[in-house]
Write a protein that binds this DNA or RNA. Structure first.
Length: 224
DNA sequence: GCATTAACAGCCG
DNA sequence: CGGCTGTTAATGC
């Protein structure tokens, strides 16, 4: 059970629900905290809750057969994910790690399925979210081989500030350059060079263990 | 050329 | 002190 104000704060979709739907969501959600670096789940876990990031930063990653770690996505506060595994009742295919102190909102499967059956607003949110993710996926396929490392970094960084997926206002993200490198598929040193270049161009501002976005529009479109 | 790993000094929290 | 940054050197595709 979660307080109404808290739910409205962390879930944009909750603000569109009817009163009855909102109550079902509220009753089905509990909050859980994770320390920096701790695992939320491993591959093969049965985490059958639909999951929202209330505060913090989560990375979705895999480890290849050769032992190489790759980050597939970073999720900031406001992100909701896992509907695939909840709907299909599958096991988790990726690792989830809290990159810093993080609080998650866990919605039990029965509440998710009830909203999925009954709420037009809830389904509208899911469709918008699928759309946004698909657009990102297509952009990835399109530009992966044409952008240089700085371009790929810029795109990955901009994704963390997708206003549909993460509707909060905060322009500053606490993340190390090493994690940004993992996210963009490059070494820490190359990520550092790319960030310096983006900072020179006035697109971002670098802090110690943090990045502030100054010009999201230009960052999204950066092509070198 | 452009990337990777290793190493290291320096700085911040 | 521990973690992160910024830089350089050696090496590889």
């Amino acid at each position: 059970m979660i307080a109404p104000d808290e739910l409205r704060r962390i879930a944009s979709w909750s603000r569109e629900l009817t009163e009855a739907e909102f109550e079902e969501a509220r009753r089905g959600i509990s909050l859980k905290s994770y320390g920096k670096g701790s695992y939320i789940c491993h591959v093969g876990d049965r985490l059958d809750s639909w999951t929202g990031v209330a505060d913090g930063l989560v990375k979705m990653s895999t480890t290849s057969k050769t032992g190489k770690a790759a980050t597939l996505a970073g999720m900031r506060a406001g992100a909701w994910f896992g509907e695939g595994t909840v709907i299909k009742g599958e096991l988790r295919r990726y690792e989830l790690v809290a990159l810093r102190e993080t609080r998650l909102a866990l919605m039990r499967r029965s509440s998710f399925l009830w909203l999925f059956e009954h709420s037009a607003a809830f389904n509208r949110f899911l469709v918008h979210q699928f759309n946004e993710r698909l657009a990102q996926f297509i952009a990835l396929a399109e530009t992966e081989r044409t952008l240089d490392s700085t371009g790929r970094l810029a795109r990955n960084l901009a994704w963390l500030f997708n206003p549909t997926l993460y509707p909060d206002q905060d322009r500053t993200l606490a993340i190390s350059q090493e994690e940004l490198g993992l996210l963009a598929g490059m070494s820490r040193q190359i990520a550092n060079q790319g960030l310096s270049k983006l900072a020179e161009l006035g697109l971002v501002e670098l802090g110690h263990g943090s990045v502030t976005i100054l010009d999201l529009d230009r960052l999204v479109r950066y092509e070198g």
